[in-house]
């Protein structure tokens, strides 16, 4: 068995005197998909920043594998509207090789938007652009902060599919942050429920039965189901059903 990519051992982080993270332990193994959930203010962002090595910890130990290559997809880009930038230039900020840039855009399905200004991309296309940038350097660990934010339901499903596909292709570990309890990828091996401390973690079906989880999120049935819902049609704006294999972004799903 290969060694873990990153290990957190009893990590704590204080903000003023308040404990944002309390003794969090976490191990991420190669190829594993782990979903991080928790209410607002639970310290999800802080934990992600610690994993990305952006902030210092106050207590505990973080161990990183020497060959750890992280690809990070931020929650949202706040590009000032006075900054004109095309999708291609956005990728070339870190990768000078245009061929690699176009290959990656092909992979995430927005190659046609290559010369378009970033500001003209739709919500789904923007998330794909961020994903493209995250996988530019062939990471072995993808950190995705709310990857389907601002995307409609059909688009969300397509995006999750794409992430699964990239996970397979790159053979990388994936850490996904989500506050949406209703949707968890069917392929998630592990769920970590965070509320300043680790409430519970384990397989999705185990976590949903855990008393700590129920206390935090209530016992409304199906708060937590694996995502198995599929569309074989889509609804037009007027409500008529359109049989189609293509969603609005031109990506097929069934």
């Amino acid at each position: 068995m290969s060694s873990p990519l990153i290990t957190l051992n009893k990590v704590s982080k204080y903000h003023n005197t308040k404990e944002t993270l309390s003794s969090v332990s976490l191990t991420i193994n190669p190829g594993q998909i782990i979903t991080l959930i928790g209410p607002n203010g639970a310290g999800k962002t802080t934990l992600v920043k610690i994993i990305l090595n952006l902030i210092d910890i106050d207590e505990g130990v973080v161990f990183r594998s020497p060959d750890l290559r992280i690809g990070y997809m931020p929650q949202k880009l706040h590009i000032d509207q006075t900054l004109p930038i095309t999708l291609e230039r956005f990728l070339r900020l870190t990768e000078k090789n245009t061929k690699i840039c176009s290959e990656v855009l092909e992979e995430v399905g927005i190659i046609n938007q290559m010369k378009c200004p970033l500001s003209s991309l739709s919500g789904g296309e923007m998330q794909r652009a961020l994903l493209a940038r995250a996988i530019l350097h062939k990471p072995n660990f993808l950190v995705l902060d709310e990857p389907v934010q601002g995307v409609d339901v059909a688009g969300q499903e397509a995006l999750y599919k794409l992430i699964e596909e990239l996970h397979r292709k790159l053979n990388c570990a994936v850490l996904m942050v989500s506050h949406d309890l209703h949707v968890v990828m069917s392929s998630t091996n592990e769920v970590l429920c965070l509320n300043n401390h680790v409430c519970c973690h384990g397989r999705p079906d185990q976590v949903s039965k855990n008393p700590a989880f129920i206390e935090l999120f209530g016992e409304s049935t199906n708060t937590y189901t694996t995502y198995t819902h599929h569309h074989d049609h889509k609804h037009e704006l007027h409500g008529e059903v359109k049989l189609s294999k293509l969603d609005e972004n031109g990506f097929s799903h069934d």
Partner: peptide, 17 residues
């Protein structure tokens, strides 16, 4: 130019890279 532009667009992303 490039690193400054990268952290202007997204500081965390630039630093991670």
């Amino acid at each position: 130019w490039d690193p400054l532009l990268a952290i202007t667009i997204d500081e965390d992303l630039g630093r991670t890279e």
